[in-house]
Nucleic acid binder design. Sequence first.
DNA 1: GGCATATTATGAAACCTTTCACTGCCTGGG
DNA 2: CCCAGGCAGTGAAAGGTTTCATAATATGCC
Lengths: 335, 335
Amino acid sequence: MTGEVSVVDVARTAGVSLGTVSNVLNRPERVAPATRARVLAAIEELGFIRNEAARQLRAGRSRSIGLVVLDIRNPFFTDLAAGVEVSAAGAGLSVVLCNSGDDVTREDHYLSLLQEQRASGILITPTARPTSPIEEIRRRGMPLVLVDRSSDDRQCSVSVDDLIGGELAIDHLISLGHQRISFVGGPISTPQVADRLAGARRAARRGGARITVVETAGLTFGAGRLMGERIATSAARRRPTAVFCANDLLALGVLQEMTRHHLAVPGDLAIVGYDDIDFAAAAAVPLTSVRQPREDLGRTAADLLIEEVVSADTHRHRQVVFEPDLVVRESTVPA
Amino acid sequence: MTGEVSVVDVARTAGVSLGTVSNVLNRPERVAPATRARVLAAIEELGFIRNEAARQLRAGRSRSIGLVVLDIRNPFFTDLAAGVEVSAAGAGLSVVLCNSGDDVTREDHYLSLLQEQRASGILITPTARPTSPIEEIRRRGMPLVLVDRSSDDRQCSVSVDDLIGGELAIDHLISLGHQRISFVGGPISTPQVADRLAGARRAARRGGARITVVETAGLTFGAGRLMGERIATSAARRRPTAVFCANDLLALGVLQEMTRHHLAVPGDLAIVGYDDIDFAAAAAVPLTSVRQPREDLGRTAADLLIEEVVSADTHRHRQVVFEPDLVVRESTVPA
DNA sequence: GGCATATTATGAAACCTTTCACTGCCTGGG
DNA sequence: CCCAGGCAGTGAAAGGTTTCATAATATGCC
């Protein structure tokens, strides 16, 4: 009753063979205009809708790519997704957006799903773990690009230099006179977090500052509030004079707790975030943040993937690394 | 070389018929344990991965539902999506997240895609337009639920009472003594915007206040900044004393411009937003906002859809309407 | 007018899974 | 010892599309 109309029905109605219907659909220029018109009329009349499953079965792969992100509620990832979509749409591919929520089980689930769907390729910001199904996927020959994570030369990756990012943040704080600085972020096992911390430490060593690490369970707003509360309620002389947060959500959470406890930012505590999401500039105190080129990241990743999909034989893996900027706002320098 | 392993290969390796392999996959309890083990071993050995396209072709429909939202970068929609995912996962369905960006062409594109994919059903926050392909889709018998938009009894819908929301906002402002209030939002053709405005007007009439409408091109951060700039730079005596924004992104944009022009919130301008996204509380001045139950909205919508998918015959369409709350913060009442 | 070539159209085969009617065998009851 | 019934396993058919070798027809050239 519903989508039960097939090419066969269209062919019968139009009085042509089913091969011709297929040609009208896929290579219209090979069909005589009159015939084409007749077929199109039949399609319209019967309300024919292509069955994508049958197409895929025949083609052996689907016309979509998977994008697996760590946290769909983090604007960083939706901005990135927007970039991916632009490139993918240009290549006639659709994007299946999957949210692993930094959960290994869910990541596994989505990766299986994408393989079963014979996705053309996968873009992934992977969870941190010793061995990942990703290697197996690559061995199977499915194009895959790591996003926001660097890689060796056995696969493509697009990332931002988090070491530099960490340095930028701490150099800035040191230049403002801060010597007691906390790094807020976690889990430390996450490469992005580890690298930002490593960069921070390097800059601190150079500048003679001391970094203490406050590890969080995740990179969320809630985790930031938790740590913000802890910082706000600790004795003033034991408090750091500045914090560098591994992302803006954390920073916003910390900021909110400072405000709630009537502590001044940056007076009592300077705050530097990471990502420079749109909300950073709109925060209670506009947030100094290490800017990542979010959309470019997504666009570039998609371009690399598409290149590998389209020309698998000539494709050479590349590791693109962007450089972050520091955007200074009032959370470190009062207006 | 890659995913070319089929059930036939598995059957041959395990020394059974392909029907048995299928049984192991789908009804393992019907297969003798020894045989089952042999088949599973063969699957493992060969690295067999089910071909979802073939399954779908056979089944006639896919195991996924589509969720078409107006703006993926608006946290309102990602929160909603999170709710949808919870319910869908519970029913063994995956969610295909599509971002129409409030663009009719893209909406059409995604709706075609979902039909071609024979999605089990569709959840959609539709763009505003006189005639929509939605009616055609329903006629074809595909389950569909309107989200964040009310409907007549010919289909399910889940929405929040925007009239009440508008009233809550304006009643609050009037109770604080505001009489010159601007409504910022658009396009007015969007039902949500129109309803919030209608509610606002009703409350204004009741309270003897005057509402002027500042129509925006969309419900984005950028649009908010544009209007914020305009308000901030207009003469103080022509300025409203309060604005009610059709969503939080607009409100945050307006707020940011006020700060940039050194105008006090709420002193020079009180601001009320809508949605109460997480960032509202973290804003420069924490935002008073009309809270919508975002995740509940998503969960309920998915539940209704799933019910229609699972028991199409006994299903009765329902129109669920939630009531919004007002969350008062410093953007209207100084701490 | 005849032949070569270009243009259109044809339809069988292949893609991979699931289902279902069926066979063979075993067990237990009479 | 026979038979009914239950359990395992079988394999052909169906699902809708695309492709490709082939056939039929039209066109152009000498």
